[in-house]
């Protein structure tokens, strides 16, 4: 075994232990990642009888180009919604968090209190949070009343509340995602700032470095590896970003509360509720997934390349 010769005797002695450590996780990943994804890929190219067929993919593809009327095309609308959500709740919020987290961690009185409060929506969970917010968005709720006072026209459609109208539901949830996303509660970015040694800031002050220079030329570059990693992770959600539409629309996806994730989840719920009786759904979910994956992967690779050129990892 020639390839083993590059490992020392001590390292080779550990091989049985390593095999023991990795045996279960590798078996698990082979079944629940490789097999599942391969099976999903095959399902996309099959019909309900299991024979090779491009019909399901055609069905998905036709869904995208139906009538060349992109504005009224449900699949295209879902994709568009996901991109808008991704830009607002991932990119904008992460970038604003870079500064708000820095201010909270290094310069703000009561930062522990602020951080604890800003973590609340994530802690209470999407079911509780969305249920409370739905009450607040009701017609008699304080948010709708405030929106009306701020100039939103009071019409019959709005009588059901902000989430019961095609013209306001999506926008309301986008604004909500920004309001709750930019506060600076991102604990991973906060952790990155906390780990920058204070000596770096102290010596920069001795060298006459001002507040803004400290922020933009020391703090942000030091935390850049974390920030860029988070942005790369968020790229994965380019076409699958969602604002818990399933919860806000009670599983209906009405009033423009639709996204690719919503559609896929709704189909999965149907599969589960019918114990997989409608076999075409397996094929359709897989085919739709493959189409979305195929257009997401180049975005992720391109985005990662750009981000890696934007800044070097700083070691300290």
């Amino acid at each position: 075994m020639k390839f083993l010769s590059k490992y020392s005797k001590m390292e080779r002695r550990d091989f049985p232990f390593i095999a023991l450590l990795l045996a279960f996780p590798i078996a698990q990943v082979l079944i629940f990642f490789f097999y599942v994804n391969a099976s999903s890929f095959l399902l996309a190219f099959q019909d309900v009888t299991g024979k090779f067929s491009l019909d399901t993919l055609k069905l998905v593809f036709e869904g995208f180009i139906r009538n060349n009327d992109f504005q009224n095309n449900p699949l295209f609308t879902m994709l568009w919604h996901s991109v808008v959500i991704w830009i607002c709740s991932n990119v904008v919020c992460t970038l604003v968090n870079v500064f708000t987290c820095y201010m909270l961690t290094k310069h703000m009185v009561g930062s522990t209190f602020f951080r604890a409060v800003f973590a609340i929506p994530g802690l209470v969970g999407v079911v509780v949070f969305s249920t409370i917010m739905k009450q607040l968005y009701g017609y008699s709720g304080p948010i709708t009343q405030m929106a009306l006072k701020m100039g939103l026209s009071d019409n019959a459609v709005l009588r059901g509340g902000l989430l019961a109208s095609d013209s306001t539901a999506f926008q309301t949830l986008i604004i909500q995602s920004i309001v709750y996303g930019i506060a600076g509660g991102n604990m991973i970015v906060a952790g990155a700032y906390m780990r920058i040694p204070n000596e770096i800031f102290e010596s920069s002050k001795l060298d006459g470095c001002g507040f803004f220079r400290e922020t933009f030329q020391i703090a942000v570059p030091c935390a850049w590896s974390t920030i860029s990693t988070m942005l790369v992770f968020s790229l994965c959600h380019f076409f699958t970003a969602d604002l818990s539409f399933y919860m806000y629309s009670n599983g209906l996806g009405n009033h423009n509360m639709t996204s690719v994730t919503f559609a896929l989840y709704k189909l999965q719920v149907t599969i589960s509720e019918t114990s997989g009786a409608n076999e075409i759904l397996y094929n359709y979910v897989s085919a739709l997934g493959i189409c979305i994956t195929a257009i997401t992967i180049p975005v992720v690779i391109f985005g990662r390349k750009i981000l890696s050129k934007m800044g070097e990892d700083v070691q300290f």
């Binding site: 989840y265 997989g276 979910v285």
Partner: peptide, 14 residues
């Protein structure tokens, strides 16, 4: 970093 979307149905089937 590489998203594989839509495997939920196959996963449920398995």
């Amino acid at each position: 970093v590489i998203p594989i979307i839509g495997a939920g149905a196959a996963s449920w089937k398995l």
